[in-house]
């Protein structure tokens, strides 16, 4: 417990967010068919901060994350109650085009999913989709994004080779590069480091630190130390319920709920 708290603050003093309720999850419940997997969640995610979701497997972290950009729309037989608002706007507004929502929200998936295209084309995909095709712009974006994802040095000589020839960890970093290429306002990361070695993990964490100045980041992780290292706020979920949500320091050092304490100290989960 003590060992962990050492890493909690990153040496930087926490600055209060300009918009503490940039993403507002309001009494949100979610069903897959008849199974209720999220139970009346209330959660405010602050602007330009890193928020971590932790909790045991199957507790609904991914489900909530995937609802933030309405990725769950693809699943048949879903239902929700309550609302989620981004910057005051409901994401379920019938007049809101889900595509424009997703353009503002980048996502890195639990399983890496590079496209069967070249590395270059993978990175610029979101720009091409938006009709931005100028070569010089794309070139700078590719370099910037790949550097951001700590991948540039490894792939700069094979940008035009297929992305499917990379290692699993490289693929995951490529997916990160792809997600940040189009400068989204929000970046959703579902266990981005689960396939990475410690060095790459450190690089990604460093990246998250840098990105924090530009993006609002939500990250799901099973790695307590990671949550403690990178996040400003942490939410602990258990069986589809939000058990505790607080400043990371607070949650790890002096959790208010017994379940949280047990979980973060590794006594269950």
């Amino acid at each position: 417990m003590n060992k962990m708290t050492k890493n909690t603050t990153n040496g930087t003093k926490e600055v209060a967010s300009e918009k503490p309720d940039y993403i507002k999850v309001d009494n949100f419940s979610f069903y897959y068919g008849s199974a209720k997997v999220l139970h009346s969640l209330n959660l405010d995610i602050p602007y330009k901060k890193v928020t971590a979701f932790i909790g045991p497997s199957g507790c609904g972290k991914s489900t909530l994350l995937r609802n933030l950009n309405r990725m769950n729309d693809l699943v048949d037989g879903i239902k929700h109650e309550g609302d989620i608002r981004v910057d005051g706007e409901s994401i379920y507004d019938p007049f809101l085009e889900v595509i424009s929502l997703r353009k503002r929200i980048g996502m890195v998936f639990q399983k890496s999913n590079p496209f069967p295209k070249t590395i270059y084309e993978n990175v610029v995909y979101s720009l091409r989709i938006a009709g931005r095709n100028s070569k010089s712009e794309l070139d700078t974006v590719v370099e910037k994004s790949l550097r951001g994802a700590a991948l540039w040095d490894e792939v700069k000589d094979r940008l035009h080779e297929s992305a499917l020839g990379m290692s699993g960890g490289q693929m995951q970093r490529l997916c990160i590069a792809r997600a940040i290429a189009n400068k989204p306002e929000i970046l959703l990361m579902d266990e981005p480091c689960s396939a990475l070695d410690p060095i790459a993990t450190a690089k990604v964490e460093e990246l998250i630190h840098e990105l924090k100045t530009e993006f609002t980041i939500v990250i799901v992780t099973h790695n307590m130390q990671q949550a403690a290292r990178v996040s400003d706020r942490t939410a602990f979920f258990y069986l589809g319920k939000l058990i505790e949500y607080d400043k990371t320091e607070q949650l790890f050092m002096s959790p208010k709920v017994k379940q949280t304490e047990d979980y973060v100290s590794g006594r269950f989960g």
Binding site: I99, R102, F115, P116, Y125, S126, R128, N182
Partner: peptide, 22 residues
């Protein structure tokens, strides 16, 4: 794979763009 479709949609692609490009 579903992952590939979701990856494309998450980049802000429409369904048709996803079909066409991926």
């Amino acid at each position: 794979s579903r992952g590939m479709r979701e990856g494309s949609l998450a980049c802000g692609a429409s369904k048709w763009q996803t079909i066409q490009n991926i």
